[in-house]
Design a protein around this nucleic acid. Sequence first.
DNA 1: GTCTATAGGAAGATAGAC
DNA 2: GTCTATCTTCCTATAGAC
Lengths: 198, 198
Amino acid sequence: MPRIAVDERRDLLVEAAIRVMVRDGVAKATTRSIVAEAGMALAAFHYSFRSKQELLENVIGTITAHTLDLAVERLGAEGSVEHKVRAALDSYWQHLMANPGEHRVTYELTQYALRHPGLATVAKRQYEAYIEGASKLIDSLAHSSDVTWTVPVPVIARYLIAVMDGLTLLWLNEGDDAGARAALDLAGDHLISLIRMS
Amino acid sequence: MPRIAVDERRDLLVEAAIRVMVRDGVAKATTRSIVAEAGMALAAFHYSFRSKQELLENVIGTITAHTLDLAVERLGAEGSVEHKVRAALDSYWQHLMANPGEHRVTYELTQYALRHPGLATVAKRQYEAYIEGASKLIDSLAHSSDVTWTVPVPVIARYLIAVMDGLTLLWLNEGDDAGARAALDLAGDHLISLIRMS
DNA sequence: GTCTATAGGAAGATAGAC
DNA sequence: GTCTATCTTCCTATAGAC
């Protein structure tokens, strides 16, 4: 009954959609379940968004931005380069263990998007944003400690993203805390071995 | 019209389901599209399988077995340990580039399974089978060349699976051949550095 | 065993009163 | 802008004739 500006309604629906996806999965995030989560009538969906696809574009954009913000926050550690690398990995891992549903949703969303022609380009841009973010993170890590990498930054960036994605999936699917943690530490060793002191 | 044994019909439906999933994605693999692919009537589905879930259990089992068979074939290389490691990674990568749809489906299936209570245990067993397969592969690689690993085999196995999963996703999502390949080679360097000659 | 026909429900999207 | 009611389509699963 209360009148809400369309822009605000859109934000509320995007947030509700993300909550439903985290709780029940992307497939269960139907227009009906989303408006129910937001406490709105079904028709509210379609005078806020032209289609479900338009909502999903916004959901993907919001989640990508959120993830990149978190990555930037992770840069704050003090001490040696080695310590900074470990701290960054630890910080990511802590966030994963505290918010598994959120991470699972990002994988579901890219897969969903890549199977739907209208969303495929959005998914690719999302991945490119991650790679660019990782590159900047790796670059500034070396600069802040006045060291260099023995391997080109774009290569390390892709390797970093692949390893973290893979370890995340491993833990989400297998559920073995100690096993995944040991593999993460091994990846950390490798990253540190790529640093050349100068 | 021709009478087919139920067991054979089940196999035909499982194979048809996999073809549909590879081509159109797991979400599009409905009972209707699967029987259409197999050239059967809709009702044939439900006197071959109790439910769609029962078919999916068979699909997951078949794909897991197929993947493990491929991994075993990859062991045949001759030469130094380093060469064997490179050859195994190359062989995997070649299969990925030639069958991207098949690999994409395995990720979709685990995600699908983990969201459906009745299939969650099947998905976990699938992942455990992968880890066990990787462990055996890593073990026999060292034995056949009379060297040892500087890190426990289960840790390397999880690291290997995570890295390959992550690199696969990276390539499937970003589509950059050279970028993913460079990251793969970096992972290869790391694996080789974990070998201790004796 | 094999089929046609249909039940029964949930999805995205829209019409039209207020 | 906001709602209820409904359209249309697609899904899994079953009934019942052959």
